[in-house]
């Protein structure tokens, strides 16, 4: 049994599933105690792997973006925007536009400073006029 556990860890490592390696033994024990099915156990293990990967990707992109971390919706003075735009910003905040491949065009002087950084977009942040690419952080 012990050998099989070691072998399982080795196989998961070779498949590059570090979270499953880390949590497999504990979760197997917990699942046995709670009488979970094999499918439910495997589902939970895979879910945790995906969740951690997603979180790590967001963190990596946020770090690459070099955006000021302190600029969040909590510090954004939404009340300084005209009322219709507040609604627009709130809707953008949900990130739904990304799923639907909707574009956003912000027109005005220094608009990015005003509009985007508070959305906490993890993106590779280049100098003005250059290309930046990102991935929306759903938070």
């Amino acid at each position: 049994m012990a050998n099989r556990q070691v072998e399982l860890r080795t196989m998961l490592q070779s498949l590059r599933l570090p979270t499953m390696v880390e949590l497999c033994a504990d979760l197997a024990l917990k699942s046995a105690k709670e009488g979970l099915s094999h499918e439910a156990f495997l589902y939970e293990l895979a879910r945790l792997e995906c969740e951690r990967r997603s979180q790590q990707r967001i963190e990596r992109l946020l770090a690459q973006s070099a955006l000021p971390r302190e600029k969040t919706f909590a510090t954004f003075q939404l009340e300084r925007l005209p009322m219709p735009m507040r609604g627009q910003i709130e809707r953008l905040r949900t990130g739904e536009f990304v799923k639907d491949a909707i574009n956003v065009v912000a027109v005005g002087p220094q608009v990015l400073e005003k509009a985007i950084s508070w959305l906490q977009w993890p993106m590779t942040w280049c100098s003005r006029g250059t290309l930046s690419c990102g991935h929306l952080r759903h938070s």
Partner: peptide, 17 residues
């Protein structure tokens, strides 16, 4: 760009900085 887009008209919004 404009087809399927959200337009944020910030021309009248004063610079926070």
């Amino acid at each position: 760009v404009v087809h399927h887009s959200v337009l944020l008209d910030m021309m009248q919004v004063r610079s926070f900085r």
